[in-house]
Design a protein around this nucleic acid. Structure first.
Lengths: 251, 251
DNA sequence: CGCGATTTGTGCACGAGTTCACAAGCGCCT
DNA sequence: AGGCGCTTGTGAACTCGTGCACAAATCGCG
């Protein structure tokens, strides 16, 4: 998706830690592997096979091995992967060796929940500041943090060196907030508002739309009932649901 | 991802409404198009070009046209798409002509917010029941609905004909809840718990992991700072950030 | 010390998804 | 009526991701 080999097929020469140019699909799965590894480490295993880790992460083992091979060779043939080493390696790759500060904008229904979500803290993030445009909400303490007015965003972001912002405002306000975040130096945005954001090049945006997820499920429901509800109906002649392999939709 | 052509390249014969066997990637984008269309309809336009709709939905126009072409030919060359017609068509495809009942399990931090999320209601869903395992919480009214104990899941799900379940419990409880949902007849699950669910064939699962989204952003942050912070550093020899094309991560 | 059991890392083929580029179709204007 | 400009729908090339299957590597044991 961005930075590129200048000339050759892989333009490194000195190559020390050597940013390995991971496929985006792999990057999206690394956090899942990391979570599975932490769970395994807690149980106490020192090493784990690709097969076992793959099951724990909900993928097949070939994919997992290929993903991990992009990070380098951290497994031992005949044995498996060293759990602790692999955790370190993935955390380094994801940039989780430092605890990253996050700004959360919009302390409404959803924002309130996000501010209290323990999963952020336990997985490498620190919610460093809460913002809202509503003066009524400014000053309100949430989870040990006072809500600030959005006008303070730039100053606070600089002081706390915040590079990641989360938008949990209504859709109508989201673009303005995004602009403010970018101005404040934020270069990664997680957007929960149901709308498309336009940001300058160099800023990454990921979108999570809760209703969309349900709508996708709805599609599959619709499809299922069309297939089963009509006994000798149209569609596929045989009543067998005929999957054979895995079910479950990918993320 | 599942049901399949028995023999021929496209095993229809009678083909009445003719389930068109959409690519999964297309399905995932349809809700976004739908949202954009509703916004456009509100402004008052009767028709819209693929170019304009694509911009509103954050994709390029070729992709949008190909996606829509899978539903059938609902555009007029030289003019564009009829907004109202297209809305109907996408809503039908997604199975949103009926308002779908959803069960929400886990009324903690996040579940509470989801129960009050207006976006569900406005986009075709009705939260029909709230469940929790904690007796303390049972009876608590949230948004006009009383929290029920999870043991009542089966009865209520049947009575309300609930086919979609949302899991917003801690990870430790999620698998048990999923099993209970499946037993209660639920065939689509939206999982907010950070863990892999195993479900029988025929049940769809989609996962939303808030921390994972941040971790993916963290990766890109890490990459960015490695490229810019080190002037003539290690890694790639030339300091040029060299993007050139689009930025912004896909969902 | 060598052999077999085990598991990683990867070359290759395949399939899904994306993008380009253009022919076909439609409305409008003259 | 005819031509022109605009926009859709789609064939074809291409990129990206996946999965199989196997060679290479390591450990343990006789």
């Amino acid at each position: 998706m961005s930075q590129h080999r200048p000339g050759g097929p892989n333009g490194r020469s000195g190559g020390v830690p050597a940013l390995p140019d991971l496929p985006e699909a792999t990057v999206a799965r690394l956090p899942e592997y990391l979570r599975a590894l932490h769970a395994i480490a807690e149980v106490g295993s020192d090493t784990i096979s690709s097969e076992a880790l793959a099951t724990a992460a909900g993928v097949n083992s070939a994919k997992l091995r290929k993903d991990l091979s992009h990070l380098g060779s951290y497994g031992t043939r005949g044995v498996g992967y060293d759990v602790a080493l692999l955790i370190d390696q993935i955390e380094f790759t994801l940039g989780l060796t430092q605890r990253r500060a996050v700004a959360l904008v919009g302390v409404g229904n959803l924002g309130h929940a996000l501010a209290g979500y323990a999963g952020f803290a336990s997985r490498g993030f620190r919610i460093a500041a809460l913002f809202d445009a509503d003066p009524e909400r400014v000053g309100e303490p949430i989870n040990g943090l006072n809500v600030l007015h959005i006008s303070e965003l730039a100053t606070v972001a600089a002081a706390e060196s915040i590079a990641i912002g989360v938008i949990a405002t209504p859709a109508a306000a989201a673009q303005d907030v995004a602009d403010a975040l970018v101005t404040a130096g934020v270069t990664s945005i997680l957007n929960f508002a149901p709308c498309v954001l336009s940001v300058p090049e160099g800023v990454d945006v990921r979108k999570v739309d809760l209703a969309i997820e349900l709508q996708i499920l709805s599609f599959h429901e619709h499809r299922k009932s069309a297939l089963t509800a009509l006994p000798g109906g149209y569609g596929s002649p045989n009543g067998l649901a005929a999957t054979g392999t895995e079910e479950a939709v990918g993320t």
